[in-house]
Design a protein around this nucleic acid. Structure first.
Lengths: 213, 213
DNA sequence: CGTGACCTTGACGTCGATCAATATTTGTGG
DNA sequence: CCACAAATATTGATCGACGTCAAGGTCACG
């Protein structure tokens, strides 16, 4: 069922979030669809905290997770005044929203969004390389490296995505993703405490598989 | 061999192009690599006229054409102060370049780039759907529709890309692209006067194949 | 007219999709 | 806390779309 941010928050006359000093956003629970592909694009949004995925659908129901967003990332982009993607939370999240017209008025906001768009565009470029040219095993290795920020070596990564969601992100099926996890485990590159708790054991081999990054 | 824009243009002390009123850019011939993945990212660039493709390479030589650019599109994006993609002209082109610092100084420029980044990000989102979830035939249909702007029905489209370049864009091999063209021709959806001259005969069927757009 | 780049087509192999059965985890009510 | 149901994950068997390898064919250019 459709469930949009505005329905989950108190007063509809609430001020735009950027006016608020310390918690400049709406709190949203896990697995909430924040906006829908095709809906009229009124606002532009920013992840303050948590994780959000953007998805697109084909008429026959095939789905692609086109982007994974974390704090600072921007979404709610428009093509012909309609949202180009749906957005769904992967974790509880805080989301800030801005009137599109604020982009003209507020050069500080515009400048932040510009930098962020540049970063996201670069990430999309790498993702095109992943989707267009990498094998299943390489894709999964790349995915895990991207989620495991350089610093946290030895730490355990909690995946807040199901195998199906990972598959839809990597252009695979859930079975293939599962087999790739098993294969990485078999090779000793990663360890899985549970299906959604991953530890990278051999970062070097993973990087070689993923082709740098 | 490496051949960058600055080598092909007269004075190295030339003023930034946005200062020039009417031909605000550098002229570049076909098949010139304007910038190289990994090089220090000094400038940000804009296609004024012509077509440019952005490519990324894997260490073993696999290539992905990550984006096709036309007039107005922006490239030369940086990740860690290095260009994230190589850029090569597909046709003779005019290219404007800006100091990265100009983004701070010039809000008009920043605003234009912001709008353009948004559009390009949307295009990348569709492309992820294409690469992740579409069959070879669907990808080629989608590709042709994107190059044939709604208006020019009945017109003949000149592809300025080889089968290999199209394949690298669509995440296929050149043979598969060639077979897809043949299949579209066999079905009567397109006509090929020459390998690089396409006419779309049945736009409806093409759209159904490509899943809207 | 010959050479090289590009394209087409065919035969065959392979990686990942599909179909299916089982295992594991999560959530719910007694 | 346990029993059961539902969701999610794993693994195996088979199939098919696309990749690979190979042999011409077409076109532009000197």
């Amino acid at each position: 069922m459709r469930q949009i941010v505005e329905e989950r928050t108190g007063s509809p006359t609430r001020q735009p979030s950027y006016a608020e000093p310390h918690h400049p956003g709406l709190r949203v629970a896990t697995h909430v669809t924040v906006l829908h592909e095709g809906d009229p694009a009124r606002r532009i949004m920013e992840v303050v905290e948590g994780a959000v995925m953007l998805t697109k659908l084909l008429p026959d129901g095939r789905r692609q997770v086109v982007e994974l967003l974390g704090p600072g990332d921007v979404f709610g982009l428009a093509h012909d005044d309609a949202y180009a993607c749906s957005a769904e939370t992967l974790t509880p999240a805080t989301i800030a929203t801005h009137e599109r017209s604020a982009l003209e008025r507020d050069p500080v906001l515009a400048s932040r969004l510009l930098r962020r768009f540049e970063a996201q565009l670069c990430v999309m470029h790498s993702h095109a390389l992943v989707l267009g040219r990498m094998s299943a095993l390489e894709r999964v290795a790349f995915f895990l490296l991207r989620l495991m920020p350089e610093g946290m070596v030895g730490g355990t990564l909690h995946l807040s995505m199901t195998r199906q969601e990972i598959a839809d992100f990597l252009g695979l099926t859930l079975e293939t993703v599962s087999r790739a996890f098993s294969e990485l485990k078999r090779r000793g590159f990663v360890a899985l405490q549970r299906a959604d708790e991953v530890r990278i054991q051999d970062r070097g081999s993973m990087r070689r598989l993923a082709g740098a990054l």
